[in-house]
C-alpha cells in the first residue's frame, strides 16, 4: 500500500494490532463474561454432580459394572450434558462475536476502520479460537480434577496419565473452539441473532442425535458432526465395552480428530470469505 499524499510515513498495517483490537472487543462485553462464567459453572457442577451420584451409588453397583468402572469414571470426567452446555456456550460466543457487529451496526464502523476485511475476520477467528481453547481447557481440566477427586473417595478415580484420560480432556477442551468457530462461521453467513442461534442448535446439538446411523450415508453424516466426533473421542472403551453395541458403521479416533479439524478450518474459511464482498 502506498500512502501517497501524506508527507510522513504511516505505520505499516500489522496483524497483531487486529488481534489486540479483537481481544479488547471480546473482553469489554459484559454479556460475554456472564455467558462464559455461567457456562463454566454449569459445566463443572454438572460433571461433579455425575461423579457424586456414582460415588453415592457405587456400593449398589453390580460386580461387572465395578470391574469396568473405568469407562464410568472417564464418562463422569466430561458428561454428555456438560458437553451440550459447552457446545451451546461456545457456539453462542462465536456467533455473537460477529452477529453482534451486524445487528448493532458496529460492523460499518469496524469495516471503515479496517477496510481489509479478510485480515480483520482472520483476527476474529484467531482470537475466538484462542479464547475458547483456553476456556475449554479450563472447564475440561477442572471437571476432570474434581470428578476424579470425588471418585477417589471410592478408590475409582483415574489419573491424567491413565490410558485415554488425556484424550477425554483434550477432546472436551477442543470441542469449545470447534463449536465457537462453527458459530462464528454460521453467524457470518446468517447475520441475524435469532436465526443463527436456531441454526447453531440445530446443526450442533439436534442433528447429532436425530440422524440415524442405520444407513451408510446417514452414518457418514452423523459421524461427520462435531458432537458425535467428540462422543467417539471420549469413548475410551469403544468396541471393548460389554454393555454397548458396536455401531454398524464404526468410526475411529483419527476420524474424530479429522472431523474436529475440518469443521474448525471450514468454519474459519467461511467466516473470512463470507463478509468480504457483501454490502454492510
Amino acid at each position: 500500500m502506498t500512502a501517497s499524499t501524506t508527507a510522513l510515513p504511516l505505520p505499516a498495517a500489522r496483524f497483531t494490532d487486529l488481534l489486540a483490537a479483537e481481544w479488547i472487543k471480546l473482553r469489554s462485553l459484559r454479556s460475554v463474561h456472564w455467558a462464559l462464567g455461567a457456562g463454566a459453572l454449569g459445566i463443572i457442577a454438572f460433571n461433579t454432580n455425575a461423579a457424586r451420584a456414582d460415588y453415592v451409588n457405587f456400593p449398589h453397583y453390580g460386580r461387572v459394572v465395578r470391574t469396568h468402572f473405568l469407562s464410568w469414571a472417564l464418562r463422569d470426567a466430561f458428561t454428555q450434558g456438560a458437553a451440550m452446555m459447552l457446545v451451546l456456550a461456545a457456539s453462542s460466543i462465536g456467533a455473537i462475536s460477529i452477529v453482534g457487529e451486524y445487528t448493532t451496526g458496529l460492523v460499518r464502523t469496524t469495516f471503515a476502520a479496517v477496510p481489509d476485511r479478510r485480515a480483520l475476520m482472520t483476527a476474529k477467528v484467531v482470537v475466538v479460537a484462542a479464547v475458547m481453547t483456553v476456556y475449554g481447557a479450563f472447564t475440561a481440566g477442572a471437571s476432570f480434577a474434581l470428578t476424579q477427586a470425588v471418585l477417589d473417595g471410592r478408590g475409582q478415580g483415574v489419573s491424567i496419565g491413565h490410558p485415554g484420560a488425556l484424550r477425554v480432556v483434550v477432546a472436551s477442551a477442543l470441542l469449545a473452539p470447534v463449536c465457537a468457530l462453527a458459530g462464528l462461521g454460521l453467524g457470518a453467513l446468517i447475520r441475524h441473532s435469532a436465526t443463527t442461534t436456531v441454526f447453531d442448535v440445530f446443526v450442533l446439538l439436534f442433528l447429532p442425535t436425530f440422524v440415524t446411523d442405520r444407513y451408510h450415508w446417514t452414518a457418514c453424516v452423523r459421524n461427520a458432526l462435531p458432537f458425535n466426533a467428540w462422543y467417539r473421542l471420549v469413548d475410551v472403551e469403544y468396541g471393548h465395552q460389554p454393555f454397548t453395541l458396536t455401531p454398524r458403521y464404526p468410526t475411529t479416533v483419527t476420524g474424530g480428530w479429522i472431523v474436529f479439524g475440518a469443521w474448525a478450518l471450514a468454519a474459519a474459511v467461511v467466516a473470512v470469505v463470507a463478509v468480504d464482498r457483501r454490502d454492510v
Binding site: 489486540a20 479488547i24 472487543k25 458496529l106 464502523t109
Partner: peptide, 20 residues
C-alpha cells in the same frame, strides 16, 4: 453504529488499537 454493551472508552480503544 456502536455496540451498546461497551463503554465509549473501550469502543474507541479497540478502534485505535486496530489502526495502531
Amino acid at each position: 453504529d456502536v455496540h451498546g454493551g461497551r463503554t465509549a472508552r473501550a469502543h474507541l480503544h479497540a478502534l485505535a488499537r486496530s489502526n495502531r
